[in-house]
Design a protein around this nucleic acid. Sequence first.
DNA 1: TCTGAATGCATAAGTATACGATGTATTAGT
DNA 2: ACTAATACATCGTATACTTATGCATTCAGA
Lengths: 112, 112
Amino acid sequence: MYSSELIKGTLKTILLKLLNEGNRMYGYEITQKVKELTNDKIQITEGALYPTLHALEADGLLETETEYIGKRVRKYYKLSTKGKVHSKEKVNEFADYMNTMKFLLGIETGTA
Amino acid sequence: MYSSELIKGTLKTILLKLLNEGNRMYGYEITQKVKELTNDKIQITEGALYPTLHALEADGLLETETEYIGKRVRKYYKLSTKGKVHSKEKVNEFADYMNTMKFLLGIETGTA
DNA sequence: TCTGAATGCATAAGTATACGATGTATTAGT
DNA sequence: ACTAATACATCGTATACTTATGCATTCAGA
């Protein structure tokens, strides 16, 4: 687990990226996927996740589809057209930022 | 310039790293150095810098030396022994975090 | 059968961190 | 004489995340 400040500001980027490749996903699924992909190093809490998803939806970047699995609600999120564009921009910005920080901190990143 | 959320959480790491290699530095010098090293992409505002420097000092990670250039005050900051250890930890954590994010976002970083 | 864990949504209060504005003062350039 | 740069600092605001809490369903184990 990373110190919590580090993750700040990257949540939106992570969400937009996941939805960009994996098509539609629901909230709980996202938390599990990130946990799995990062070997528990990044754990998205629900208190951070849902408000952020709602904000992205309010910005017109995400669209939702609600389904019922038995009696349990499941709310799928997927990127809107606008969201797809924004997703790429965010990921590119982060890539740029990483290169800047790498230089600034004199870090050699793994080639993998 | 990056969207402001991105920088959040990295300021302490940047400060600790700069002081670790460049020995003692004063506040204004730090802002200029970061601006220069990042081609204006990261600009540390004074409203963020000084409270953070004070916080690091209060945590015993930094030590200060005040000097006068003419009548103008200049307050130098340098790492304490504790700060040197912490600096390495922070930079290593960030390097780890970058590799995680690189994988998560499917980013290829520049080799430079 | 019942209890706890996992699934699945959501909000609210509290905290941390940075931004923007503002303030004071000295020095260098025009 | 005025403006920009140097150099410190604080305060109010916004943002974003954490922790805590709440509700409801489903599943596995004792």
